[in-house]
């Protein structure tokens, strides 16, 4: 196990698009363990994506189980994740390990259906909404070289929304 170095914006590498995992090797499993250790070393953090530690493969981890007020699937290892459908819209506040000392409002789909493999290459489908769906969308954005900064809704614009939903 090893703690990995987290890239900090404006590191250009955070804009790189990650490639799908083709082989579910021992190396991938070891990387997932290191990524998990890194993720757990940041209290309050609910997810991490491989490109945040400079590995440009489509791997994200999400775990919001320490926030039991939000319905969740526990610790998720999502490899080659695909959002197959999404519904609704919701405004919520986000921050990022790669963007210290800044948070902002971001609009995300309220509910999503997701297909992904685990570290053994087994395919799973998930239906999730609210906070967990927000976390997964935030992490998948990293795989496409996007940060929450690319999706910010300004404070004043947010006020003009007819309904401001919280997740």
């Amino acid at each position: 196990m090893a703690l990995l170095n987290v890239l900090i914006y404006p590191d250009e590498r955070l804009k790189q698009i990650s490639q799908p995992v083709k082989e579910f090797s021992e190396d991938i499993k070891k990387f997932v363990r290191d990524l998990e250790e890194t993720f757990r070393s940041f209290p309050g953090c609910v997810g991490i994506a491989a490109p945040q530690v400079g590995r440009f493969e489509r791997i994200v981890l999400v775990d919001i189980s320490y926030k039991p007020q939000h319905v969740n699937h526990g610790f998720l290892v999502l490899i080659n994740p695909e959002i197959t459908s999404s519904e609704g819209a919701s405004l919520g506040r986000e921050g990022c390990l790669s963007v210290p000392d800044y948070t902002g409002k971001v609009e995300r789909a309220k509910s999503i259906t997701l297909e992904a493999c685990n570290e053994n290459g087994e395919e799973h489908q998930f239906r999730m909404s609210g906070y967990e769906a927000r976390a997964v969308q935030h992490e998948i954005d990293h795989l496409d070289g996007k940060l929450f900064l690319d999706r910010l809704v300004s404070r004043r614009n947010a006020l003009s929304k007819r309904i401001e939903l919280s997740t």
Binding site: V46, E94, H138
Partner: peptide, 9 residues
């Protein structure tokens, strides 16, 4: 009021 639960990922 609405609680704000900032999601950090």
């Amino acid at each position: 009021m609405t609680p704000i639960d900032t999601m950090v990922g």
